[in-house]
Amino acid sequence: MPTTEDNMLGSLLTALTAAAERSRSAGRTTSERIRRFETEQLTLHVLAATVVFLIVLPVLIAALVSTKRAGIVTSIGDLVPGGHALSNYRRALIGLEFWRFMLNSFVMSVAVVVGKLIVSLLAALVIVYYRFPYKNAVFLFILFTLLLPVPVRFVPLYRLTTELGMGNTFFAITVPYLASATTVFILRQHFLSIPASLVETAKVDGVGPLRFLWSVLIPMSRAVLVGVSVIMFVYTWNQYLWPLVIINAESLQVAQVGLNLLRGQASTGEVAWSMVMTGSILTLLPPLALLVLFRRQLLETFTIQQK
């Protein structure tokens, strides 16, 4: 990702210049002010580093444990990295077939992201660029679903899905997620920030709605689409409750629930903390990678969501 790197460099440079400028302007008054400024900054950096350390620590421990054999660490001294990283990850992924849960989660997340994007793009297109009766009612109908998160309706949803014969299927963990008020809302807000004259030009030129969507809106919404995709991916990837109740076949289970299976057959007393931590790290990696890679688009999108 050269662009991301450029950006990081860019912001770093800006920050450096700003800092230099500040200290220059401070220097004009007294050198004492520079010193105070620098000490202050140093203190802030120490504080920030501590915060970062505290926030990273639990996962750092998990990562260390995932390199050990038994995985029992009862004191800080136990935190020496072990030499079993490779064998642990291999055992988790291949031996215990965690790759299958990861794959299921991945397929589920990608399917939901793609499906949601299509469904929401069409809905947002209509809501922003069409004139039709009861439009506000339709928009409210979509927004109102914000009040119906999975937790308040998973009981009847379970009955409905099983009655449709869709319990324990891929359908059950994807299709119910496809309607998303949040995504429609974010896309709508973004479309509203695109000048109206663009669609008017298109209209006068005879460009149809779908072509406008494909050739103008989508290319112009790249950052936001990446952003909402990351948000949706993280959201879907992290789903726990619904797969827990609707999926019981191991072959279809997702990583979040599969993690618990790594604890081993509990009643036989197998203790596998290093496996659990290995699985935890594996489960954390995909959303984390997306966050780091696409943080710029993600942050941009969040600012839209908040409105």
Partner: peptide
């Protein structure tokens, strides 16, 4: 917490454990 109990016993936090006879091997 079957696993936690066994783990407590195996790591020497407790000297006795009551659990299933099926856990002999483990």
């Amino acid at each position: 917490a079957w696993g936690e109990a066994t783990s407590t016993f195996l790591t020497g936090k407790a000297a006795m454990l009551m659990t299933s006879t099926a856990s002999v091997t483990g």
